[in-house]
Amino acid sequence: MADPYLRLDQLEVTFTGGRSPVRAVNGVDLTVDSGETVALIGESGSGKSVTLRAILRLNPEKKTRIGGKVTVGGRDVMGLGNKALAQFRGGEVAMIFQEPLLALDPVYTLGDQITEAIRRHEPISKADARKRALSLFERVRIPSPERRLDTYPHEMSGGMRQRAMIALALACNPKVLLADEPTTALDATVQIQILLLLRELQREFGLSIIFVTHDLGAAVEVADRIAVMYAGRIVEEGSARDIIHTPRHPYTIGLLKSRAHGAMTKGRRLDAIAGSPPDLADLPKGCAFAARCTLATDPCRQTQPELIQTETGTRARCLRTDQTLTRPGELVGA
């Protein structure tokens, strides 16, 4: 098997700006092959967005300590010089953001922003760059693209803006697309359209996508593989199907149970995971989820569990997987 296109080895990100260091990411191993979509799932503060930003080295350098290795296309990202980094950002790995209205500059037209981004990376004329921008707008299915190029971000609807944001990200033909909750700010019908668009573009361009979300439904829609993050670690990882049908980590099971799906029948309560995530400045010694886990035992609180291969296909960071076997599909109501 060929080397994965993008590889994180024991990635650690610690924010040192505050009074005590905040360990946002604590040893994440992740691989993404060319043309593969991996979803990172977790609740707020689980380190998923920080992981994404670390790949592009976007976290403020003075206040951040990064450990481990990030390799993209055989190159060590942490060792890139300024010039190579500028080429790498956008040219090799591009990113789309949660709220397109905030991630687009309000005082320039979309066409100007895209041509500017293209010309930053390639020495081509304005007219040629605009032609590229136009074809990108067609690729992301923006109706009447010619006219849309000359509109300002605030003149478009949320879905159109996110399409434009995607066009902007794809402007310099990146190999990897990092999507930071790209559908969270959109309403449900538009979400599906954007997810389908991402899947289509991925096939068309052969993109690798890392898709960060806290919406399991969205993740299943686009991802080949899903990695569940908790307190800066990947607690369970496997193919999208295995994660949904036979999750083995109590946290993944909790996430699935807490989806509104199961509780749509009247009179049934929505299952929630009790408690709140641990303080990242003061992580427990053992499993970070132990305090909220109904299956936790003393060893759980004492030792950091390793990621182990379960017999149902996923890899889970849990000592009690013998207790977590569910009927396949039970949690998603299949």
């Binding site: 592009l56 709220e99 500059d105 930053r120 944001m165 310099c172």
Partner: peptide, 24 residues
Amino acid sequence: DFVEAARASGAGALTIIRVHVLGN
């Protein structure tokens, strides 16, 4: 966000000041 987005697409400090800061 759009300044971070510009950084994420490879803009250096000078480009960000010239385009995004001055423009706004």
